[in-house]
Amino acid sequence: MKVLVPVKRVIDYNVKARVKADQSGVDLANVKMSMNPFDEIAVEEAVRLKEGKEHHAAGTATEIVVVSIGVTQAQETIRTALAMGADRGVLIQSDTDLEPLAVAKLLKAVVEEEKPDLVLMGKQSIDGDNNAVGQMLAALLDWPQATFAGKLVIEGGKATVTREVDGGLQTIAAELPAVVTVDLRLNTPRYASLPNIMKAKKKEIAMKAVADYGVDVADRLKVLKVTEPPKRAAGVKVESAAQLVESLKSAGVL
């Protein structure tokens, strides 16, 4: 089974995003960038499908292709995935940040070229927080989707996915080919070992341009401004639990 894993280069999750003074966006100059943490989980699961780790049979995945859409430096993000165990990469270069619909259309074109049996990807990127590309890709391909995966089992031509939903867990079985988007608790991604980092340098990354795919990637949304969320006014410190209850009562909360 061939697995395609889309990955995105985003602000590192430990870095606090700062809004630019001119309200045009978030300041990413000289900010540490990393692979979107949800995508890292998707790469890890794909590698486990190949290695036969956990409950997966060895060789469930035979080839793992990683694709990214972004600036030239997104090669580093692909390299990270290759060091974790993916086989080869594709970078579709774009200097502008594309909207989820455009990304889904490009990924559809990549799927048509690569013909994977499974697309495994993060449920959302931690910059735009749209939580949309996986679902949109599935729709454009007319494939079934299984989002927010906390557990994945590949068996009998189906992806059986336990989904993390409001109020509990839901398990569904989707016929392959399918799109599965992953949630935080699916696995804990590995750190690439030094020998694997060295090996990854020899793996192939195909460099492409958005224009190679002939799809309409025009923006549909116009960002009018990006602002800081309102700050909460500083509160007061109380000395004891009794004083806390008193304060809450006089504030009318209790």
């Binding site: 909207e99 989820p100 619909l101 749209n130 949309a132 679902q135 989707q145 939903v165």
Partner: peptide, 23 residues
Amino acid sequence: ATTDGKNFAPRIAAKLDVAPISD
């Protein structure tokens, strides 16, 4: 924007060829 809404809304948007607006 519940887990159900987040699951199906972008799928509808893609079929309509529109940009979903989340959350």
